[in-house]
Design a protein around this nucleic acid. Structure first.
Lengths: 352, 352
DNA sequence: CGACCAAATGTGACCGGTCACAAGACTCTC
DNA sequence: GAGAGTCTTGTGACCGGTCACATTTGGTCG
């Protein structure tokens, strides 16, 4: 790969000096027109623009980067895989928003949440010349790793409660909504399937959930944890099988799906034998059997907001961008996986 | 945004000449060491490497790009949104593979499949200096639009039968497997829920499906189309409700999910009242109710293979890379949504 | 030991933009 | 109509790498 250098493509495109010659001005004037500098006579400007059009000129990005030390690129640091609905939705929104503002997006994905991996990924981005970084690293360790790094460019962290001027969906409220919904339906024995302990969203959902229960003098009758996957939701049911409960909150939709599957395999029907609330409102949730009651969050807004904030921080040059924390309120979507506790086996209320 | 230029970040990093001074050699020698040029005395090389380490030097990409007219970047053109499982899985694999080979990935997403949009997106990539392009544009029109463009860099198209040296999962075989499976279970009245007509995968799946049926002297008793979404699968059921059938092939898992949901809403149970086969094997498919029999495809291999091919085409400079077409064979995964036709209402076999 | 060749290293130009500064053109005032 | 001030344009250096070519160094051989 080294050694041999291939001049792979077009060395033929027009340069700013070609345009200048054709328009009969200096290269600097062309540069001024290109950059919208005010002090150019309209006639001259037009002449230059014509030449640009005729030669199909487009400025060379590398040259501009070299000269200005600016890249018009922002980096996204994402630890989660595309398989996770939330992070990848946010990623997509970020890309769109950045493009709309004239920026390119460069993705870096550390393989794990070790500080070293993180640092390497950030270095990579910095080295590529990104002017700012959006971090979508919902694991707590990732956020912490990120906080230890002091970067020369503005950084915006999404969905990470550790960062001070955080930007996130308010997962605690989401957890509360879930608990409140089950409670108000009449459920008194409620279980929890939490997300992985190392994700901050997971903690927040659990916290909100438990906080509401506490506010009415209750607490979860049982709890298990999963890794967001349907399989782990399925397995969680096994861990909870000894306990009787009539409602369960699963920290995301996939786990809810797995949980419902497991319940079915154990002869328990949802919602008649058990009410289930999920979280995320993935597009398929409306068609699960039964259609899943869940908590909806608007990832799109989150992504766009992140880019807005990053860009404004970049404008102000300093990372003095201490915007107020911004929290999106999630929303309860009631479907058919939750009903009042009826016809439950006596044990559900009877045994400890 | 124009007019004001912000020197946002570090103009402070070391250059190749700083390294040269510290190592007491010329800048050119440093360059040689960096590029692994053979004719450098080991002692000198070591001295340079030490200096590089000490100054934490990293070559400036923009400068290299400018000088060599190479970018070490490949472009990905993707028309589908992240919500589609297949394309986003492939995208993810491409990113990993490219990174492993030392390339960055730049994403361009045309808003629609108009030739103009396409052309603009490609222009963007070219202008950013990508050395090759992977097109993940499963819509037929997108592929056609792409074919009309003659680009100065190698292009690899994924999952698009229009392109000659195509690279794809063999969706026809997948369709055949689905039909064969239903047939061998004993189903004789089989329906089809196809994907959107403008996606080539959709056509291929349908073709394979019908081809198998034809080979045993049969044909679908009814057909509807969807747009890949669960909702469209749900609606498809309504269009097929007049016809009696005991098995159905849905061209992707999400539509299968919606279809099962609709069947349930009409009092038909899967699999006892109806057998359903999906396509894709999304991670949740194993936990649908019932767990979905479906066709598995390996998107990861597809993505990596695409990058391999692109890189080799780039090596050979020319786009003379007429590799043989490469087709991944998908695989039938039998779960619980398909059983022999039993206990079906008489009408299922009786009426026309 | 000088000649000769290859290996090792150095020199300056160049890629295509932007920057700082200089210089020319044009107004306006007295 | 000369001087001051503004608007417009031009000049050459520079960013940090690589390239082509020149030069020095080291080794081998007659």
């Amino acid at each position: 790969m080294w050694g041999v250098t291939i001049h792979a493509h077009s060395r033929d495109s027009a340069s700013i000096r070609d345009v200048a010659k054709l328009a009969n001005v200096s290269h600097q004037t062309v540069s001024r027109v290109l950059n919208g500098h005010p002090n150019v006579r309209p006639a001259t400007r037009q002449r230059v623009l014509d030449a640009v059009a005729e030669l199909r000129f487009r400025p060379n990005r590398a040259a501009r980067m070299l000269a200005t030390n600016r890249s018009y690129t922002v980096g996204v640091l994402m630890t989660a895989s595309h398989a996770y609905y939330g992070p990848s939705s946010v990623m997509s929104a970020i890309e769109d928003a950045a493009r709309d503002s004239g920026y390119s997006v460069l993705l870096a994905r550390p393989r794990d949440t070790e500080v070293a991996e993180f640092s390497a990924a950030v270095d990579h981005l910095i080295h590529e010349g990104v002017e700012g970084i959006v971090v979508v690293a919902p694991q707590i360790r990732a956020a912490e790793a990120m906080m230890t790094l002091r970067e020369p460019v503005p950084v915006v962290m999404i969905q990470c409660e550790v960062a001070d001027p955080g930007l996130s969906v308010d997962n605690e409220v989401g957890g509360e909504l879930a608990a409140q919904h089950l409670w108000e339906l009449g459920h008194r024995r409620i279980a929890l399937v939490a997300g992985p302990a190392d994700w901050s969203e997971s903690g927040a959902r659990t916290r909100g959930f438990e906080r509401f229960l506490a506010s009415v003098g209750a607490q979860p009758v049982a709890a298990a944890g999963g890794d967001w996957s349907s399989m782990s939701g399925y397995n969680a049911f096994g861990h909870l099988a000894d306990t009787a409960f009539t409602g369960v909150f699963c920290a995301n939709d996939q786990m809810a799906l797995g949980f419902i599957h497991a319940a079915f395999d154990h002869g328990i029907n949802v919602p008649t034998g058990l009410s289930v609330v999920g979280f995320d409102d993935v597009p398929e949730a409306a068609h699960y059997l039964p259609p899943l009651t869940t908590i909806h969050q608007d990832f799109d807004v989150l992504g766009r907001r992140a880019v807005d904030r990053l860009l404004s921080a970049m404008q102000q040059d300093a990372n003095a961008a201490t915007d107020e924390a911004f929290s999106l309120r999630p929303q309860l979507i009631v479907r058919k996986s939750t009903i009042p506790p009826v016809l439950n086996p006596p044990s559900a209320l009877g045994s400890p």
